[in-house]
Design a protein around this nucleic acid. Structure first.
Lengths: 535, 535
DNA sequence: GCTTTCCCACCTAGGTGTAAAGCT
DNA sequence: AGCTTTACACCTAGGTGGGAAAGC
């Protein structure tokens, strides 16, 4: 029995290049002339929609804020909507990932009941430049209303409500967003590009946090791309909802101190269309629109099973949404401009670049953007290290392309409208605006997705959404606050019992396996541990 | 200002191949006909020298065992020896990594005072086959004397003394060991090959552990390689000792349950000769002989600064030494047979393989070994998954080479003696046997080496060494038990305060930076945190 | 007709020993 | 003369989109 290393495919001689078309429209987007938040560092920060999730232990001021938010904005219950899909949202049905394989398909028609009820997102109605430079009014570092008091929570740490989340490489996200971001999903899993990278402010240096990400449907529609119109169209109702997996950042928990210094990158997260995926990748429906979300959960000290049970309601967490990271999942790129932008900005796609399509000036600008994106990945960056000259010069260069305008030309020379009007009404050419109001409410707590254990169900637990410039907005409606709280508790319980030992690529270190690849034994362990937390 | 991605070197056309010489001597080593310990799984397990480090909380039976060990074997104090080098061993001098830059060079002559005092290691006198199949009499899974009772320690967990550590890919280590293992050290850091991979038995499933590794000098000598004799010679006294860094496995802490299922691989550990290294790589002197060691430290629950201080003496840990992993650090390979074996067994060196030197049969055998080594890296392996057919067939194949004998031919056709006689007296051709008796005793607790903080000094804290077949052996003498205990406490304190968040490659995920590369800010944080634990 | 899958060329990132140059 | 450093060819490992083929 001769055993050989896994074979490597031999290279052949054919070189395929991407078809040529103008990238002017891609580059021709005005960049903000100032950076929100952290001017001194040069870091580009995106405005975040913050989802404040109240905890019973909220201090008076924070609770008042939350209450105010709830009172001044209509938070219509979508219980009936989510209830119709509720089989998969009940905690009991999420004990095992396999439960999702025959996920409920009840009442798909109920998914659209709230469509348009609350109108388009206000943030989308803002002038382009304004929306890109918006600062969260609640938590932005420059003038956080609660920063002066720095209200301690019941356990003595800095209040969660003060925490700010900043989207890195926002310029790149904006470029994709303007075209209509597409993300490839494959059976074996595909990374996102751009990578979602965030940093935090106002975390308590002495507190430890988990950072998580999930991706929720934006609406209940299925889309298709009209090539002749170069735009996305609604193709019908959404396919049956999939298990929403919560991806816990494998490095967690993080100290609040380091969260202030280091960028949290979700570059290892992978998207798949494989409903049977057992590797913790996030499962999405192709041709559906999705919104990534970032959650930060305070880690409790002295975790053990008893406290996990008794203090379930004391969990504290916070959710952030960046509208510019919305995307449509695809199995193959639809919009050629997206393909082009991916090729020109993702280093791994460099082999498809065709320098003949770009002038030296364009090439230089593009590489600046790439450099910026790559640089942001370094774990060594700290604020104020003054290494942002690239970003500086990039903006000067890119702004020179603004004359090209928002419209580009397709490969046939036809005028191309911006295709992402659905999400950027200010750029719309007549499409029916879609809202976030019926984002899927359920947040299945599957903290063990990459660790192997399905923790507990957690519906999207938004008590209210604070828009950076507009105050609270009902981006997501409250479904079951306790669910996300349970999920947070599960994260803490998992941390206390097994930590991140299954999430690191170093434990046994085969490069052939991803850190989220966990043997079934481990998955069972995790599952049982979580079960133990929920008597 | 055009910024471009880091340049990649262009490939040229010249192909350099390793010089050809026979590998028969390398392959011609009889392998053990049985596996120690885990026959049912097919996993090859190496005999470990276990260094029992007593804890004040040891239960009666374990303490009795330890006492017996101490009583029946001479544990002469080497306090004077280590005391002469003591500046760098005092906890106070290890607060900062920078302290090491001018490490003490006092009394180098004192290093050899115990040379030969205890005679050669008995394990080296064993018949070859016996030493390779030896099972630790204390802790080997098949008949652990204490397994039946499974004595709980004072905190209710399974006793540390029961824990067994097993060296993976022992066959490969033995092949190198027979030739005289050399490990390249470079300024930028070089991985070890073979990689040190261990698994554990009898860990408490509900307890969490840190797994650490350090590399300590075997003796106080400097070596040189005599090409004309194809053997290593003593070249004089050792260079001034270097700061011994404790490398904490970046995935820790691990649950005892997973430690029983998964192999802990130290493949990311790097060796360097750069005394100013700030990246947590292990610093070694070239042309010096070293012994890797594995430490497992029980993680305490409910870590906080108070308990870290008050319970310092309650730390529980255990140290394991595998003599077949001894090596000489080199900046360039000396023994061409080592070069050949590395090329033929390290997948990354495949480009230097010259198939003309090997028959198909030899090639097949070598690849089986490689496959085995690679396979052992998978984090997904669990015991009893029956995938060891490669290892099985490998042994059959390799045994057919035994006729070649222990001696090979150098490239000139001259008879080559085994060069590692110093460590394998049974293979010796007259070299003066060297012992482990004067292994450097000091174990500097530099848990923060890759995390950025030098925790505390910890001398090699051996209360006694249990040889698999021979009982206790004074491999290492007790210097300062409390030091390693402090180091363990520091590890726990670090875990409680910052966990492994600096150790993972995913936090910001640049592939250009290793997980141990931590910005100075983080290092200061870690250092101060540890300082806080040691008032 | 539209969507998905698969294999592939071509990248990034980085782990090897080589050979020549550099150092002492 | 012996040891160390450096650039580099050549690997492993795996992330890209292309395009043909397969589904559906």
């Amino acid at each position: 029995m001769s055993s050989r290393p896994v074979g490597h495919s031999e290279k052949s001689q054919l070189s395929n290049k991407a078809s040529a078309f103008s990238i002017a429209a891609i580059l021709g987007d005005k960049l903000p002339s100032e950076r929100s938040g952290r001017d001194s560092t040069g870091r580009s920060a995106a405005a975040a929609i913050t989802v404040n999730v109240g905890s019973p232990t909220l201090p008076p001021a924070a609770s008042a804020l939350l209450t105010h938010s709830l009172a001044t904005h209509p938070l219509s219950s979508t219980g009936s909507e989510t209830g119709n899909r509720g089989d998969s949202t009940s905690p009991r049905s999420i004990v095992s990932p396999h439960r999702y394989e025959n996920v409920s398909e009840k009442s798909p028609s109920a998914m659209d009941t709230s469509e348009g009820k609350l109108g388009p997102l206000d943030i989308c109605s803002l002038p382009n430049g304004t929306s890109r430079n918006s600062s969260p009014i609640l938590v932005e570092p420059k003038s956080p209303p609660l920063a002066a008091t720095n209200l301690p929570s019941s356990n003595g740490s800095v209040e969660m409500a003060n925490i700010t989340c900043i989207l890195e490489t926002k310029e790149l996200w904006n470029k994709f967003h303007d075209l209509g971001t597409e993300m490839i999903i494959t059976k074996s899993g595909r990374r996102m590009f751009p990578t979602l990278r965030v940093s935090f402010r106002n975390t308590d240096p002495d507190t430890r946090y988990f950072v998580l990400m999930d991706i929720v449907p934006v609406d209940s529609k299925r889309y298709r791309y009209a090539y002749h119109k170069s735009s996305w169209l609604v193709a019908g109702k959404a396919d049956p909802p999939l298990p929403t997996r919560l991806y816990m950042h494998p490095d967690g928990p993080h100290s609040g101190l380091n969260l202030q210094k280091q960028t949290v990158s979700f570059e290892k997260l992978k998207l798949t269309n494989n409903l049977l995926d057992k590797n913790g990748r996030i499962i999405l429906n192709s041709m559906h629109k999705y919104q990534p979300r970032i959650h930060i959960v305070k880690k409790r000290d002295n975790i053990n099973e008893a406290t996990s049970i008794t203090n379930l309601d004391a969990e504290e967490f916070r959710t952030f949404v960046f509208p510019e990271t919305v995307f449509i999942a695809v199995t193959a790129y639809q919009n050629q401009l997206i393909t082009k932008l991916k090729i020109d900005s993702n280093p791994f796609a460099k082999g498809f670049r065709d320098s003949s399509r770009l002038s030296d000036f364009e090439r230089e600008s593009m590489e600046g953007l790439i450099q910026h994106h790559t640089y942001a990945r370094s774990p060594l960056r700290s604020y104020g290290d003054g290494d942002y000259s690239d970003a500086e010069s990039l903006k000067l260069r890119e702004s020179s392309f603004s004359k090209v305008g928002e419209q580009g030309l397709d490969k046939n020379g036809a005028m191309m409208l911006p295709h992402w009007a659905l999400w950027r009404p200010s750029l719309s050419a007549g499409s029916t605006p879609t809202t976030y109001s019926n984002i899927d409410q359920r947040l299945y707590a599957w903290y063990g997705s990459m660790y192997g254990f399905p923790a507990t169900a957690a519906a999207a637990a938004a008590a209210g959404i604070v828009f950076p410039n507009l105050g609270l907005h009902p981006l997501q409606l409250p479904d079951n606050l306790r669910e996300l709280r349970n999920a947070a508790a599960a994260a803490n319980a998992y941390s206390g019992l097994t930590s991140s030992e299954n999430s690191s690529p170093f434990l046994s270190g085969s490069h052939r396996f991803h850190p989220y690849l966990v043997p079934d034994e481990v998955k069972r362990e995790g599952a049982s541990l979580v079960e133990g937390c929920r008597p």
